[in-house]
């Protein structure tokens, strides 16, 4: 016979187990994605976009939510938005204004500077992998700064960028992720990387995605025509294995394919 004490103890243990399962499932089920495909095995549809703004608009249009993004590019696109309407530029704004504009106060329109930041703030993505070309990676995190070892600098950088515990990983190699990802290949990646090499790496990576995008980053003044030219070479390779969808929305006209 179960005593009152044991009954209470087991009820608590069951409550705990149910809470863990419910929150885990609740979190996973809130992720919004379409049917995923393997990059190497299937013939994926790849969206070509002219601007990072167009990329962001596509994510919004597809209502993707709570996702992992693998972004290949030289830049991090994670510039913190400046104080806007919520704080209204004041050091001590009204309490009601902060409550009303709690979200705006961290947001500004998505651009090449901050579209990953905005995607994170809008809950489009929950985890970001910045895959940076090896030479740029070394320059950004290691050799340029003599203040500490490469690992220390990476840790410091990562720690200062953990907002809400969201994980951003900076890496020079494609990550191994079982969950379908949002994959974006930015033209800036080709400043120091080879199109064929990346194509082969992607095919070997085992990554699965429901939304693959390739972005010319025409809104980013730091991306050169040479880099965009190499991106087109990459597209030519990719078109053997994928269906390329030209830009369709107002931000991304078909002229990009020229």
């Amino acid at each position: 016979m179960i005593t009152k004490k044991n009954g209470l103890s087991f009820s608590i243990l069951v409550l705990c187990a149910v809470s863990v399962v419910a929150l885990n499932l609740g979190g996973i089920s809130s992720r919004v994605r379409a049917k995923a495909f393997a990059l190497a095995a299937d013939r994926p549809r790849v969206h070509l976009l002219r601007t990072t703004g167009g990329l962001y608009a596509l994510w919004q249009e597809r209502h993707v939510h709570g996702r992992v993004v693998v972004h290949l590019g030289k830049y991090l696109h994670f510039t913190d938005s400046q104080l806007s309407s919520g704080m209204n530029g004041q050091f001590f704004p009204q309490i009601s204004a902060v409550a009303r504009d709690h979200q705006d106060f961290r947001m500004s329109p998505a651009s090449y500077r901050n579209f990953l930041w905005d995607a994170f703030q809008e809950n489009i993505v929950r985890k970001i992998y910045n895959v940076i070309p090896p030479s740029d990676f070394a320059q950004r995190f290691g050799q340029e700064n003599a203040a500490g070892s490469r690992q220390e600098i990476i840790e410091k950088f990562a720690a200062s960028d953990i907002y809400d515990g969201a994980q951003r990983t900076f890496t020079a190699t494609l990550p191994r992720i079982t969950e379908p990802v949002l994959l974006n290949i930015d033209a800036s990646y080709f400043g120091s990387a080879d199109a064929r090499e990346l194509f082969d790496s992607l095919m070997r990576s085992g990554l699965r995605s429901d939304l693959v995008t390739v972005c010319l980053s025409e809104d980013n003044p730091d991306v050169t025509d040479l880099e965009r030219g190499r991106l087109r070479e990459f597209l030519a390779l990719l078109s053997q294995r994928a269906e390329i969808i030209p830009p369709t929305n107002s931000l991304d006209s078909p002229t990009a394919l020229k």
Partner: peptide, 27 residues
Amino acid sequence: FSSLVVLPATIYLLSYAPWFIYRGYDI
């Protein structure tokens, strides 16, 4: 154990419900 360890930990976990539900995180 159940009342003073598991139950507080469960309540602590439950206080993260919006973090799970709105943002898609898992355990």
